[in-house]
């Protein structure tokens, strides 16, 4: 089994907040982490490798420091790390990102399975996984919550839906996006940590993968951000007072329109 996991480095949400004075994102001490959903994608890949044999390659597109999340992935069981990084990727939307990742996947070579997180927590778009599958002309299934059966040929899984779940079956090659319920990611072992320190992360540029300049970065992005602004302030805040009975009475009165 050859498995590729797409991993994004994202700012840690607890550090990202808007400074109410200046209306800019507070930037001090913003830590970068592996996108939480991608940890579950990685864990599933490593489990499938342990069960069926093969190799797990982790792939990221991002600035040079994204190398850190690839090393972290190797410490958790991935075999090979590939970072595609180029100033020309700046401003990429999900279309341009999917295109670029597809070019990198073709460079990496054969694969049976690609795993992505359901969404990246910085943009919350959930579009790169499906987009990548379309670029590679393979089927995709989103929001996998459970793998019921896996062998060399096919997978039977549960896909989370709004009203329950669907049981789906598919043969390789396929791209899956996963949700948090799928598994419990492992913590890196000591051996894994040693390995990740020594591992060589392969670096690719736009030219290395033969990406068309018109399809990457801002030029390749059909969507463009024209404005950013703080969310509208919430209305009045009130901590109710009095004893609990009085507070409950006041609350129910305030909520009259919803009852």
């Amino acid at each position: 089994m050859k498995i590729i996991v797409c991993i994004k480095q994202v700012p840690d949400a607890k550090d990202v907040r808007l400074d109410p004075e200046t209306n800019t994102l507070a930037r001090e001490g913003v830590q970068s982490i592996m996108n939480p959903y991608d940890q579950h994608a990685l864990e599933e890949a490593v489990r499938l490798k342990e069960q069926l044999g093969g190799e797990v390659t982790v792939l990221s597109m991002g600035p040079p420091q994204a190398e850190e999340v690839l090393r972290q992935a190797i410490s958790c069981g991935a075999d090979r790390g590939v970072l595609i990084s180029d100033r020309a990727f700046a401003g990429a939307d999900t279309w341009a990102t999917s295109y670029t990742l597809a070019k990198a996947v073709n460079k990496i070579g054969d694969f049976d399975l690609i795993l992505c997180g359901k969404q990246a927590i910085d943009g919350d778009t959930a579009q790169v996984g499906p987009g990548l599958a379309i670029q590679l002309e393979i089927p995709f299934i989103t929001c996998i919550q459970k793998v019921r059966e896996a062998d060399e040929k096919h997978l039977v899984m549960e896909r989370m839906m709004d009203d329950g779940y669907d049981v789906v079956s598919v043969q390789y090659p396929v791209l899956l996006t996963v949700v948090k319920d799928l598994n419990e990611p492992r913590v890196p072992s000591l051996k894994g940590k040693m390995k990740s320190k020594k591992a060589k992360i392969e670096m690719l540029t736009a030219a290395d993968v033969g990406a068309d300049a018109a399809c990457i970065g801002l030029a390749g992005s059909p969507t463009q951000v024209v404005d950013v602004f703080p969310p509208p302030p919430r209305g009045e805040r009130a901590i109710l007072t009095g004893n609990i009975d009085e507070q409950v009475e006041q609350l129910v009165a305030k909520l009259a329109t919803y009852l």
Binding site: W95, Q127, P130, A133, I134, T142, D162, P222, T223
Partner: peptide, 23 residues
Amino acid sequence: ATAIGRSFIPGVANTLGAGLTAD
């Protein structure tokens, strides 16, 4: 922006080369 919409619409947009804004 439901489970179904956020699953197949990104595929359709990518096929068409169209811009898609989520949620």
